[in-house]
Amino acid sequence: MMLAFDVLLAALLVWIALGSLSELKLFKSVVMFVVFGLFMALAWVRLGAPDVALAEAAIGAGVTGALMLDAVGHMRERQQPYPAATARQDASDA
């Protein structure tokens, strides 16, 4: 039974990795990357390395994912002015 789980996990990992790399929309690519980190963590668990899994989940998926989302936001800000809705929200935050 766990063999079926492992095969499914490996197949999904490959699918997500391809989805992350072969994507033109940056945002979607980043979300796929975060999901890939989570799956990689599960794979480390199955490989018997829970400490590596913890590090992968925290650093690989969490921190890197948040930094990449931030980077995507900055790149958009450079390219175009903010749309009205977001600008208003920022003004109320300040």
């Binding site: 980043v30 969490g62 989302l69 931030d70 749309p83 977001t86």
Partner: peptide, 12 residues
Amino acid sequence: TAVAFVKRAWRA
């Protein structure tokens, strides 16, 4: 990640 998304990367 949800906070990072809302504060930074979101555009309608």
